[in-house]
Amino acid sequence: MEIKQTALAGTLESSDIQIMLSKGTDGITIDLESDVEKQFGDQIRKVITDTLAEFDIDNGKVKAVDKGALDCVIKARTIAVAQRALQTQDQPAWEAF
């Protein structure tokens, strides 16, 4: 699916993650900032990439600022930012859950 606009989801509160998704041409690139990068960086990237794949997004630039979010939060924020970027938020992708 084609990204239509740059979108943002999430906050910078503790235990949340803020994700910005914009158009890209070079697959999924993730710029991650996290205090738990050493321990959970790979896992955070995997959750974001897997969730974007469920929306058939193959190209896109992700900028994520993580404040110690759990996987369920990362997934929810990624779904939100994907739907906003695709302008499909009026039809929530329930099946993605």
């Binding site: 738990v36 050493k38 321990q39 959970f40 960086g41 896992q43 759990l70 996987d71």
Partner: peptide, 9 residues
């Protein structure tokens, strides 16, 4: 179960 298993330091 809440946080997952961290990569060893």
């Amino acid at each position: 179960a809440k946080v997952g298993t961290p990569k060893p330091l």
